[in-house]
Write a protein that binds this DNA or RNA. Structure first.
Length: 301
DNA sequence: ACAATATGGAAAA
DNA sequence: TTTCCCTATTGTA
């Protein structure tokens, strides 16, 4: 589940459940045991995210830096009657300490498992991590021009650039495939062939899509007119709920034109696109120049 | 039972 | 550029 929207939602949920409260910190699985012991009993200031990075802010300028990687999960439960025993490999567990004061929130706990990264860091290290991230569509202080500067100068495929966290932070494999579909851009199109207007539309779209992702806590990218109800088609059955155009829809008909959705590999990840809605940049050039066929490997029309 | 896969990225070579 | 890691779930034998 972890693209930028997941981390932002997590930061918000953790803040709501834990901010201003003292916590028991443990590592049932053991990998974070030393750090957990140091943090036990401290007070949570809040949590924040940038791109796919999450920072849980504890007192005395200590931060737990979490990256969920591909398979991590951080389950946050607010107001439980009783805290259950940890299930599976729980690397970090936070449990609120009952407060004699006026805090009326019930007991909260959060379990982290499967994360690729869980480190105790200070402000300097935190800033260093933030400093190497590109603009994040979920942050109001983001400067999309910084991303455009790199995209417009790079011959790398736009599908590659969108996933590069130094270029743009928070976009993952689902959002990249879906936003390219929504803007009818082939994933292999070189960044330096995009027009600035296209980039501005993509950015604005990501801002909206990802904000909606935070709200719904899942990725939905299908426009109203292409929803199952509007088209009389079956809703997405497979996995994580949200309606999408091309992600993991290989071999199925495009919701817009009916063409067969294709897949290929791009920078070690699966990419999905519609060959009719997202024509290759090359094929247009070839059409007008009507000369020589393509070389280059990887995904093609 | 075992293998493959997954919305990711760092470290090694 | 390749290898490795984290864990849970799904698919194959």
């Amino acid at each position: 589940m972890p693209e930028g929207h997941t981390l932002r939602r997590l930061a918000d949920d953790l803040t709501a459940a834990f901010a201003g409260r003292a916590v028991r910190v443990s590592s049932p699985q053991g990998r974070f045991a030393t750090e957990a012991a140091q943090l036990d009993g401290s007070t949570v200031v809040g949590a924040d995210s940038a791109g796919k990075h999450l920072f849980v802010d504890l007192d005395h300028d200590r931060f737990v830096h979490v990256h969920l990687g591909l398979i991590g999960a951080f389950d946050v439960h607010a107001e439980v009657e009783e805290v259950p025993a940890p299930v599976g490999a729980v690397r970090l567990r936070l449990v609120t300490v009952p407060d004699a004061g006026s805090d009326k929130r019930g007991t909260a706990y959060a379990d982290l498992r499967g994360a690729i990264l869980c480190d105790l860091v200070g402000p300097a290290r935190r800033d260093e991590i933030l400093g190497r991230l590109g603009p994040d569509p979920l942050r109001s202080d983001a400067e999309p021009d910084l991303a455009w500067r790199r995209i417009s100068r790079s011959p790398r495929p736009i599908g590659d650039l969108l996933m590069d966290q130094k270029v743009l932070a928070g976009v993952g494999n689902v959002y990249r495939a879906e936003v390219l579909f929504r803007h009818r851009i082939h994933p292999l199109r070189p960044g330096n062939t995009l027009r600035v207007g296209q980039w501005r539309s993509i950015w604005a779209d990501l801002v909206g899509l990802m904000a909606e992702g935070v709200r719904a806590n899942r990725i939905d990218t299908v426009r109203p007119e292409h929803l199952p109800e509007a088209m009389g088609r079956a809703p997405r059955q497979d996995d994580h709920g949200g309606e999408v155009y091309v992600y993991r829809r290989t071999g199925m008909p495009c919701h817009v034109c009916g063409s067969t959705v294709r897949t290929g590999e791009l920078v070690g990840r699966n990419i999905f696109w519609c060959p009719r809605c997202q024509p290759t940049f090359r094929s247009r050039a070839v059409q007008s120049a009507s000369k020589d066929a393509g070389a280059s490997g990887g995904a093609q029309t």
